[in-house]
Amino acid sequence: MATEALGWWGVPLGILAGTLRGSVPFLLVSLGECLTEKSGKINLGLEGTLLFGAMSAYAISYLSSGIVGPTLAPWLGVLAAGVAGMVLGSIHGWLSQQPRVNDVAVGIAMIIFGGGLANFFGKPFIQPQAPHLPTLPIGGWSDLAPVQSALQISPLFLLGVAIVPLMSWFFKSTRWGLYVRAVGDSPDAALAMGISIFWVRMASIVAGSFLAGIGGASLSLFYPGVWTERISSGQGLMAVALVIFARWRPWQCLWASLLFGGAQALGPAFQSVGIDSYYYLFNAAPYILTLVIMIITCSPKRTLAGAPGALGQDS
């Protein structure tokens, strides 16, 4: 079982691997939130959706593996996670569009509600092993086991990457994309165009929650590949924040997610090569890095560049 030591090469490799594994939930949640926010509503509750999705995926994959076999079961799990996300999303979509109801407040309540449901129903699934999603080994060219392992790509990662240009194209070039942007930017104009603001927002929120639910499936069925109550530990909330960082652009969501996923691996990778002090600060690297980049790239003149006009307004 011996593998060869990589030494200092372990750090860039760890970051690369972390980028490919750790970025998937960030990517899917931030894309989902990007779609949601483009329609003019914020869904902070995706942290709860992520948890509920992770639990649903794991539970369904475990329960169905006896019936449909271990190849199909995790895919059923992914589907279940998406549907679970849609259920929570439709609650958020309906409630946050009631008069005088604030979407941020509903989102925070949904974090608690979604997380509570996930933990409540998830108790029996902490211990058993559910079949995981398969991965694509694209590192076969290398003799080094660490390289092969780092280049295990999840199909959900590919799905996320494929959605990026699609979503970009959707917003720019399709009629439905125009509807979403119109509803998000100037609801009055959208109303004049005869678009149902309620249903466009509802659809955007539900679709966004579907993606976030699948992000949860990537946590429990790909990496780290377990269901525990601490599985997300704030990743959903952070992914929502990354959308602002990414200025509501799908491509930038991708870069932000990769940056964040990679930076997560810094602390452990540094310790493994002997830099063993300051690991709390290394573990905080993704947050510090994001803040520094924002301070550098923002300017007071274009605070809201790219921000949907109706964001943060009560309906």
């Binding site: 609650i91 509600f113 509570g116 996930a118 409540f120």
Partner: peptide
Amino acid sequence: ATVLVFQGIVFLCVLYSES
């Protein structure tokens, strides 16, 4: 986790009552 579910339901209902 039951208390989380309870908390979530209470706050969702209170928020809805605003409307």
